[in-house]
Every structure is written in C-alpha cells, then in structure tokens.
Computed example of a mutant assay.
Amino acid sequence: MRYPLDRDLHLRGRGIRLVPSYFCWDTPVALADEDLPPVLGFPVSHEHEPAPLPKHLATLLGRTRAAVLYAVAGCPTSGELADRLGVSAAAVSRHTTVLRDAGLITSRRHGAVVLHHLTPAGAALLG
C-alpha cells in the first residue's frame, strides 16, 4: 500500500484494526504502540456525489431503491447505507425490506448492526 515511508509493521500474532477515516487524506496512517494492537487508519472517499446509477435500475426500481441495491454490493450496515445515500434509517429499512422480499439481498444482524449482502439474483440485476 502506498505510504510516505518504507515501513514494515510486524504483527507478531496480534490482529490489526483497520479504521476508515474521513480525516485521513491521500495515504494511510499507521498507529503502532508495542503495548496496544496495531491500528491502520486509511482514507475514505471525500466525494459527496454518489456514483451514477445504471439507468435501467433507476427506471425499474426507482432512484433511491436502485441506489440502495447498488450500495449493498459493498456489504454495508444499515447505518452506513443511510450515511452514504443521505437518507433516513427508516427509509433504508423500507428499501432493504422490499429488496429482501424480492430476493435481491439478504440481511443479517451482527450485534447491534444489520449487515446487508447481495444475493446471486441481486448481483445478476446489477451486472
């Protein structure tokens, strides 16, 4: 990965925490303390415009529902979908319910969050 210095981070059996950060620009930042698990902060997109939706999806499903289906390809949580698309949590819930009932996505609770995944049918529709 691109980094300002040539550096190796030896985990020695420890895990590494990957932290997406809006405040990290251009290159990742490694935070290493021998007494703590290593952390790698990496930049997320600073673009506010969503990727253009395929016109056939927006026509078929409606713009917001198509955007939800398109965004589910990254296996986000409901909160991430709401943030990414700029819609309410209630709107995400309604759209994911319709997409799940149509067999295009699956949803699974993991602790306090709900993770969404494309089904083969959903992936085929996006393709």
Rank of each mutant, 00 (worst) to 15 (best):
P20F: 05
R100V: 08
P52N: 03
A123Y: 04
D26V: 03
H56W: 13
V39S: 11
L9N: 09
L61Q: 00
P38N: 06
R108S: 04
H110I: 06
H95C: 11
H46D: 15
P43Y: 00
G15D: 12
A66W: 01
V29A: 14
L40N: 01
G103F: 06
S107Q: 12
A71G: 00
D83V: 03
A89R: 12
L53I: 05
R2M: 14
A102S: 09
V44A: 13
S93G: 09
A91G: 04
L81H: 01
A67Y: 00
R65W: 04
D35N: 10
H117F: 12
L126I: 13
E34V: 01
H48K: 13
L85G: 01
D33L: 15
Y3E: 05
L31W: 13
I105T: 03
T119N: 05
E47R: 14
V39H: 10
A71F: 03
H46E: 09
H95N: 15
H10Q: 14
E34Q: 12
L57D: 02
P52F: 08
G41S: 13
P76V: 04
R109Y: 06
V114C: 05
R7S: 14
G74M: 14
R109S: 06
H48A: 14
R108Q: 10
R94F: 08
R14P: 08
L57M: 08
P4C: 13
H56V: 11
R12V: 11
L31R: 15
P76A: 11
R100C: 07
G41N: 10
L40C: 04
V114E: 06
P20Q: 02
L99M: 14
I16L: 05
G122S: 00
R2W: 08
D101S: 09
S107T: 08
P20I: 05
E49T: 07
R100I: 03
A30Q: 01
P120G: 08
L125V: 00
D6F: 10
L85V: 01
C75K: 15
T77M: 08
A67L: 04
F42V: 05
E34T: 07
E34A: 11
T97H: 14
V19A: 14
L53T: 04
A90Q: 12
V98T: 13
K55P: 14
T119Q: 05
